[in-house]
């Protein structure tokens, strides 16, 4: 699945600790734009330990590398607040770690680049689209069905669907190690929804990113994830666990515990 063009083919470092990348990942996946710092886990699990945010009881949750966990619940139940807390935009207590890296010990901007949060609505502050990006492979635009010239466009020219797809690219250009997606396909037509879904699940697999994906669409949750949680009355309930899945992310799960 050569989704990211032809970036350097990196071999996985043997991660320290207990992280055990799936065999298939270890041997065959290409890692785009990834700079592996010696001693850092190339595959990091996202762990929430007794994470407390206002309005939610403490959350314990581990998302394995390359795993996508779906999160659902009525609006106002605190899904967004939970994601914001994980990327450290919301005051919280308890611990969050990515592999062995603890949130509190990491400078906040660095943490937010590693734990990429995609808000429901994207904001743009410069005149031209391209000014919001440092570097985006042209193939990414193509795979997202975007005009190759889109970087030169003024932001005002974008449709809401184009904004959303560009917001996904803008986030992934940071090459985050974990993803927090807040209804990433909510306002997209089926065609573009599939594009974004495919792009994201592929990123998750090829980068071994741990992902929390908020969705209201149960069919989508079936497609993207095996494990699914629901927030109800300020509590996190597991509504589905494991089992064979027909999902795209299933490939990423084989080989993990």
């Amino acid at each position: 699945m050569d989704f990211f063009g032809d970036p350097c083919t990196a071999s996985w470092q043997t991660p320290k600790g207990d992280v055990n990348p799936p065999d298939r990942l270890r041997h065959s996946y290409r890692v785009p734009l990834r700079i592996t710092v010696a001693g850092e886990d190339p595959l990091a699990e996202l762990v929430l330990e007794k994470l407390e945010v206002e309005g939610l009881s403490p959350v314990d949750l581990t998302v394995r590398p390359a795993e996508c966990v779906a999160l659902t619940g009525p609006s106002g139940s605190g899904k967004t607040r939970l994601l914001r807390a994980v990327c450290d935009m919301e005051p919280h207590s308890g611990a969050i770690r990515l592999g062995e890296t603890y949130c509190e010990q990491t400078p906040a901007p660095l943490w937010r680049r590693r734990v990429g949060f995609l808000p429901t609505e994207s904001r743009w502050w410069k005149e031209a689209v391209g000014e919001h990006f440092r570097d985006v492979p042209e193939k990414w635009l193509d795979r997202m069905g975007l005009d190759p010239e889109v970087m030169q466009w003024p932001v005002s020219r974008l449709s809401s669907g184009e904004r959303q797809r560009l917001a996904v690219l803008r986030l992934l250009a940071n090459v985050p190690d974990a993803l927090l997606l807040d209804e990433p396909t909510a306002n997209l037509d089926p065609n573009n929804r599939d594009r974004v879904e495919f792009f994201l699940t592929d990123y998750i697999q090829s980068n071994g990113a741990a992902c929390l994906w908020v969705s209201h669409d149960s069919e989508q949750m079936d497609r993207i994830s095996r494990r699914c949680y629901e927030i109800r009355d300020g509590r996190l309930f597991q509504v589905r666990e494991g089992g064979p899945s027909n999902g795209r992310a299933a490939a990423a799960d084989t080989g993990s515990r």
Binding site: M89, P109, S122, R123, W125, L171
Partner: peptide
């Protein structure tokens, strides 16, 4: 007025100083 924009910039990994620069 621009608090959501400032937050977006922080979320994308900018420092507080970059996010409020303009």
């Amino acid at each position: 007025e621009q608090r959501e924009i400032v937050e977006s910039r922080l979320i994308l990994g900018q420092t507080w100083s970059q996010a409020i620069d303009d």
